[in-house]
Amino acid sequence: MFEITVERDFSSGHYLRNYRGKCEYPHGHNYKVHVTLRGKELDPSGLLMDFKDLKVVMHPIIEYLDHRMINDLEPFTEINPSAENLAKYFFDETSKQVAELTKGRVHVKDCTIFETDTTYATYYE
């Protein structure tokens, strides 16, 4: 099995609903996101997927969230923009595109969202 990971970053604000503590108030983070892909077969070039292609897949998701109040964006108007839910959002959004681009040869293994250098959440299936 082969794996590759791309790290990107973005800055956004959010607040947590149904929460008591500092995070119930609007605040911001300099997020990092890691998307890891996995697959058994490499392409004819010897790549699982070109890193730049994964960056292209991630770009519109990053742009959608960057320098925005996440609570104002779908689907986070309904669900809390926790690190856990953001990790699942990245997983779902990148999975569709990666499967299409690689004709199902490559899958998203997991997505990890760092709110700080020492706190993060991971989603996988």
Rank of each mutant, 00 (worst) to 15 (best):
R8Q: 13
V56M: 09
V98L: 04
T122P: 03
S12Y: 02
K55M: 07
R68Q: 14
E100N: 12
F51S: 10
N30V: 08
L101T: 08
C23W: 07
G21D: 06
Y124E: 11
D110Q: 15
K103P: 04
V56F: 05
L47F: 08
N18V: 04
H34F: 10
R105I: 02
L48H: 05
S12L: 04
K40D: 10
T116F: 02
H107R: 11
H29R: 04
T112E: 04
R38Q: 11
A83L: 12
L73W: 10
C23P: 06
N30I: 06
Q97P: 08
H59N: 13
H34S: 06
S82H: 09
G46M: 07
G104V: 06
T5D: 00
P81K: 04
G28N: 07
Y123A: 03
L42K: 14
R105Q: 07
E3W: 04
K55S: 02
I70W: 01
F114V: 05
T5P: 01
T102F: 03
V6T: 10
D92M: 07
I62D: 01
T77A: 12
V33P: 01
G46A: 08
H29A: 06
D110R: 15
V108P: 06
I4R: 07
K52N: 09
S82A: 11
T116L: 05
A87W: 01
E41Q: 14
Y123F: 13
P26S: 10
R68K: 15
L73A: 12
K32F: 06
D72Q: 14
L42V: 05
H27M: 05
H27Q: 05
T94E: 02
I70H: 02
G13W: 00
D43L: 12
Y19G: 11
D9C: 11
E24N: 14
F90I: 08
L42W: 00
T5W: 00
E125G: 11
G104A: 07
K109L: 10
I4F: 01
K52H: 08
A83D: 10
K103A: 08
Q97T: 15
T77D: 13
Y120V: 05
N30G: 09
E84I: 14
G28F: 03
S45W: 03
I4N: 07
N30T: 11
L48E: 00
N18L: 15
V108S: 01
A99L: 14
E84Q: 15
K55V: 04
R17K: 15
T36A: 03
R17Y: 13
Y25C: 08
K96V: 11
